[in-house]
Computed example of a mutant assay.
Amino acid sequence: MKNLIKRYKFFIVTIVIVGIITIFNKELGLKSLGIAGFSLKEMALVIPPVFILLGLLDIWVPKETMIKFMGEGSGIKGVILSIIIGSAAAGPLYGAFPVAAVFMKKGVKFTNILIFIGAWSTTKIPMLLFEISALGKTFALTRLAIDIPGIIIIAYILAAFTSKDEIKKIYKNAEKL
């Protein structure tokens, strides 16, 4: 029981604070509960499809294939594939992290995982299409031309500043999931 309380202490404290706020300001408390409910509903619609696709990726794509195309010796092909997969992804950024964990289990190079997460957050195809229609082709393509090299540079800098031991810990934690 103590472990359960310790594990969910932030959630419990948040519920207590929202309860106190609701007592003093019913409108604000109900509004915060509505926002929390909306977020939970959104996550409930996004997370199951992500996990289904992850299960399929885990079963259908052999580790050797992932290492060949996105592993340590993949070079530019791994970078390009990371950008394409991240750009083609759908859903909010929190959906990228379970995918990154599966990539780690499959032996994908750390830099390519960082590039994938950067592409997921910045270069999504639907967002590009929206920008072209709303802000113009010049703006959208200029932003993309700046973002892609930026993502790659940041990924390599992060990988350079992260120790080999820390990277091993990250991969080891991903294996536990």
Rank of each mutant, 00 (worst) to 15 (best):
K63T: 15
G55N: 06
L33M: 15
G136Q: 09
M66Y: 13
L81Q: 01
K77I: 13
I76Q: 00
G118L: 08
K63P: 02
Y171C: 06
G136A: 04
P92A: 12
T138Q: 12
V61M: 09
I52T: 01
L54D: 07
A90H: 12
K172Y: 10
I113A: 02
G34W: 07
K137S: 12
G73M: 07
F139K: 07
F103C: 01
D58S: 14
T65R: 14
L40A: 14
T138S: 13
V61A: 00
T142Q: 11
I132N: 01
I67Q: 15
L144Q: 00
L4C: 09
T14N: 12
K172P: 03
I167C: 00
V16I: 15
A155W: 03
I47Y: 06
P62T: 01
I84E: 08
G86Q: 11
N25S: 10
I47S: 00
S74P: 02
K168P: 04
A101V: 15
N25G: 04
L57R: 07
S82N: 03
K41Y: 13
I167F: 04
G75R: 03
V99C: 09
P126C: 02
L128V: 04
G78C: 06
V102S: 12
A119K: 08
K2F: 13
L28S: 11
P62Y: 03
I21V: 15
T122M: 15
M43I: 14
T123R: 13
A90V: 13
A119N: 05
F24G: 13
P98Y: 02
F110W: 12
I125C: 10
I125G: 10
I17S: 06
E175I: 02
S39A: 15
S74L: 00
F10T: 05
L114R: 00
L56Q: 09
I148Q: 12
V50S: 00
V46Q: 03
M70Q: 10
K168A: 15
L54T: 04
K168I: 07
L158N: 12
K9T: 10
F110T: 00
T22L: 11
K109I: 04
L93P: 10
I153P: 11
K137L: 15
